[in-house]
Design a protein around this nucleic acid. Structure first.
Lengths: 206, 206, 206, 206
DNA sequence: AATGAATGAGCCTTCATTCAT
DNA sequence: GATGAATGAAGGCTCATTCAT
């Protein structure tokens, strides 16, 4: 199993695909960075599209485990919500591991392709399922499924905004810095917004 | 002096740029749809990049007036917030005018370029300014600027989620239809979430 | 005769043709500098090639008279030779009038076309005829026509070298400056070389 | 690892570049003659400009050795000068090897580019150095460097005239044929002119 | 008489893919 | 198993010329 070239290609591809998108990224760029030959991609993966898909799932399977062990179900639902939000927000504060998956997601949102399906299955749906559980515990029991879903979307909507709209934010409020302190306050803000909405939902039933 | 070709090009360009992005869209596609010659773009706009920019601002200037001059400041701040949210949400319910600007925005979020600056100035900043006024009126007077901003971002975050993440939504919840009824409920939901957060902000001060 | 545009085109064309050559010079450049329309050239001159030819002869007829009517045949043949050489050499010392014709000549030497014929007839042949007369007077009477011609070519060869090979000279001897003083010494040098050759021709007959 | 196409391209390029100049020559012409594909040039050389430069130095390195190792320093300086001149003149008499480098030189004189630098370094400067040695030996010892240089330029000026000004010569004296006999007489003529000038320089010191 | 608009041929270059080794 | 060489389709752009006014 001396597939060193194949491994190297899978490792170095995400960077470029994340930055340029599937179509704009060129195989020459990628093999160049991997120190491999142009034909390597077609040899190992058949064609560019297939390679793209394989590279994404390879990266997901390698990095997802580290990110998902977030249960600690002994905590209160409120705390679980705060943790969930904190994990989303701190993704883009800690810059050390470049957020490939997130950038790929934006690229796929702009130009959806087969890879989007895989990302939804492997990344989004599990995360959304976890959030659904938390919100179900928080909200009144007689909340309809649709209502729970809306609350979930409110959570991820607020979180993803800081993730996806950075190019807008940096132009709209150039002075705003997303350092650790701001991130902490953000987590508190979003959490309290969502809990206030939950509370309102309970009050409504009185 | 009809400049008929130039006009036709400006009209038919947004469609393709919105769908494919600046780089992937080809001038041949665009001129083909406009029934014009490839050189027409270089003649009228110098090059592809400039044409892209001009097409976007052309479209903004043509469609923006219809969308923005609805304030009705005599209403209560709560009603103004509901109206603001409703305008954002109903953008993608009424399908008649294809949401070019919104798609362009996603494309630019994935691959920001000079056009992003123009969109922020012409579209985003005015809208955000209006929202800031509304939220300033709703929130306690001693709210810091940063706090107001976070509430604003919570509003647009929740709204934009349905706008930007449609490719995700359609895969995550294929049964969910974004018809007029769901949109109306969505507006109510987001409005009540935000107002609950505002109320919590007031309660905190007691 | 309000052919102002036509005149302006003829005036401003040489500059660009001289610098770029016929093929590389574009009509857009030329009409741009003349403040005219692209179609002006085809309208007034039929096509680019014809315009090029007319521009060159226009310039020749306008500038040649000032340059050629200096014979002073009362002087000694030696002095006439010195004057001839001086005229050639000082062409490229006095920079005020940009040497369009000379540059056009180099362009045509690299890529000869119909214009070359006209330049030979209007510029080269008259000048060469004058030189032939001078040399015929200087050389022994029994010199063959071919011998006289070789002496003439020695004169113009030495002179033109400084005119045509400037790009080489500036790279070969970057420190060498072609100021007025060097030009004066150059005239003396070339004149004395040619007169020494003439003297040798006389001595040979003794 | 034959790189046959690359070699073939290098071989067949000079012809067209020499005839048309860098800008006017098209890659399609060149690859057509080499029986190759258009992309071959970009694959092997990156771009047209680089290909041009590589083709020129390739040709220089292939042909220069044959031409330069002829010194025979045991001969008298007069004889060395005659040899030098003869080599320059016979370049364009022997038509068998088409004079690519010379034509390229004229093209670069008309439109100098980066290639000119390389030609000066590889071709001109060595040749000029050799001539400087010869002339230094011939001229009086107290001749200034500038004086020696002028004598050298007189030599190459006379020689190059027949090389560069052929399009003029063929129009000015259509009957003059540059056959071997005329070339021989030309070598004698130029040599005697230069030696007469040398002798005059010595006489002046008496 | 003169011009802005429009065209089509051609150019260099890029790129994913295939071929031969 | 892996690669350097080569290809063909396509892209953006330039330019002299023509068209319609």
């Amino acid at each position: 199993m001396g597939n060193k070239t194949k491994q190297k290609l899978l490792e170095s591809a995400l960077d470029i695909f994340a930055e340029e998108g599937f179509k704009s990224a060129t195989v020459q760029q990628i093999v160049g960075r991997a120190g491999a030959n142009v034909s390597a991609i077609n040899y190992h993966f058949g064609n560019k599209a297939n390679f793209y898909a394989e590279a994404v799932v390879h990266h997901i399977k390698k990095t997802l485990p580290n990110a998902s062990l977030e249960s600690k179900s002994e905590n209160s639902p409120e705390e679980q919500l705060r943790t969930f939000i904190s994990q989303r927000i701190t993704i883009f504060t800690k810059k050390k591991p470049p957020r490939f998956i997130e950038k790929i997601m934006i690229q796929e949102m702009a130009n959806p392709g087969p890879v989007m399906d895989k990302m939804v299955e492997h990344v989004i749906r599990p995360s959304f399922k976890r959030l659904s559980e938390i919100m179900t515990n928080l909200l009144p029991e007689d909340c309809s499924e649709a209502e729970v879903r809306r609350h979930c979307f409110s959570v991820v909507g607020q979180c993803n905004f800081y993730l996806h709209s950075q190019p807008i934010l940096s132009r709209l409020s150039p002075d705003m810095e997303l350092d650790e302190e701001e991130a902490a306050q953000l987590v508190e803000h979003i959490t309290s917004v969502c809990l206030a909405a939950v509370k309102a939902e309970h009050d409504k039933r009185l």
